[in-house]
Every structure is written in C-alpha cells, then in structure tokens.
C-alpha cells in the first residue's frame, strides 16, 4: 500500500511535468489542449473501473462470495468518480476550444449516458432490500449495464452522424512527446484507481467486521437480559 502510494505520487508529479512543460503546445488549439491528457486518462480509468464491476459481478453470481460484491460496489463508485472527472474535463476543454460547455459531442454524450447507468447502479446498491438479494440484483445490473456500453456508444455515434457536423478544428497532430505525456497520465490514473480501490475495499471489510462485532454484542446483550 505504502509503495503504491509513493509510486502514484511520484508518477503524478512526472505526469504533470510532462503534460504542462515537456509536451509541445498543440498548433491549433493552444494551451487548453493540455486538458486532453487528463481527460483521456480519466475516461480510460472509468472504463477500467466498469470492466472490474462487470467481472466482479459475474464472479459474484458464480461463487456467491461476498468479497466480489464489495469489489464491484467499490469499483463502481470509483468508476462514477472518474466518469465525472472525464465529463468535467471534457466540458472545460470544449468551452476553451469551441466556446461552448456542452455540444452533444458523441463521445462525451455516451460517457454521460454511462455516468447515468452507473448512478443507477449505485442507487440500487443503496436501496435494495436484503443483503444477498441486494448483491445479486446489483450484479445483474453490473453485467447488463456493461454489455450495453458498446451498443450505447454505437447508437450515439450514429445519432450524431445524421446531423450536419459543425466545422471543428481538424484532427490533433500527435507529436511523440505528447504520446509520452498521455502514457504517463494514463499510468498514473490507473495506479491511483488501484490505490483508491484497495482503500475502498478495506473500508468495506472494516465495516463488515464492525457489523459482525455489533452482532456478537447484540447476542451477548440478549443472553444477559434473559439471565437478569
């Protein structure tokens, strides 16, 4: 855990340095283009988080082991967090580049729908009744939600392609240093995700143990009151 924290911190500094100082300025878009590194990294990490939800959900339904449910829930929370980051950075970028916060850009739109899907997942985790039933229902959603992701993506692209596209600054010219900066940003965010996930799962474990101790106390209290 400690090593991971240090590694994430150091890599974070390197990634910032690469993105803001080393990477050359993009010719057309100028400085705002530097948001790109963190935007892409957030989006990547969000998808990784939801993939983990998907895999953990399948594992839960197959084994019924509680840890998979805890892992899925923790990862979904982080996935929603990184999706929010991707959306906010994307909107900021859009504002800086095109002067508009939200223009139904296909990739941002499908990210937004994805965000809604997993908000629904978190709501379900919070409001479902019964411990095991809740876990199973959430797992069902975690599976079906993820399988819908590519289909949502396709449909949104198709939807936008039917509208006349506003003329936009052309494709970004990727220079080698830009690629390096992007790579570092992605690696840093991924490590940060893993680190946070570990903490989140550990918190859930502690919560579990606390409940368990409370349960023992409850039984003990019941025994004592019967004796008295």
């Amino acid at each position: 855990m400690k090593i991971l924290a240090w590694l994430t911190g150091i890599l974070g500094v390197v990634a910032l340095y690469l993105a803001f100082i080393v990477a050359p300025e993009e010719a057309v878009m100028g400085p705002p283009q530097r948001i790109f590194y963190f935007h892409v990294a957030s989006a990547w990490t969000a998808y990784l988080g939801f993939l983990v939800v998907f895999v953990a959900s399948i594992a839960y339904l197959r084994t019924g082991a509680r840890k998979w449910d805890r892992l899925a829930f923790s990862s979904a929370e982080l996935g929603v967090f990184f999706t929010s980051m991707a959306l906010l950075s994307g909107m900021t970028w859009g504002r800086a580049a095109w002067g508009i916060w939200w223009d139904w850009e296909p990739r941002l739109t499908s990210t937004f729908i994805l965000w809604l899907v997993y908000i629904g997942y978190l709501f379900t985790q919070m409001t479902a009744e019964g411990d095991e039933k809740r876990a199973r229902i959430a797992a069902g959603l975690g599976i079906i939600g993820f399988l819908d992701v590519p289909i949502i993506h396709m449909s949104v692209r198709w939807w936008r392609s039917l509208h006349p596209e506003v003329v936009r600054p052309g494709k970004m010219q990727m220079e080698p240093m830009m690629g390096v900066a992007l790579l570092f940003a992605v690696v840093t965010f991924t490590l940060f995700y893993v680190y946070m996930l570990k903490w989140r799962v550990r918190t859930e474990d502690l919560r579990d143990r606390l409940f368990h101790l409370k349960e023992i106390m409850r039984q003990r209290g019941a025994a004592a009151s019967r004796r008295g």
């Binding site: 629904g120 379900t124 409001t127 479902a128 009744e129 809740r134 449909s155 949104v156």
Partner: peptide, 27 residues
C-alpha cells in the same frame, strides 16, 4: 423485476431504464 426489490422502486425504475434504453430510443 430488479427494482421491485428496492425501497424506491417507482423512482428507481425510470432511472435504470432510460440510460440503458438509449440505443432503442435513438434508433
């Protein structure tokens, strides 16, 4: 069926259904 097991099923169902149904709505 999933939402009927939650405390807020009437509200939760639309929240779950519309994002997942986005491809159908669009098409």
């Amino acid at each position: 069926a999933l939402a009927s097991n939650t405390r807020a099923s009437e509200v939760l169902l639309p929240v779950l259904i519309f994002p997942l149904l986005a491809p159908v709505i669009i098409a």
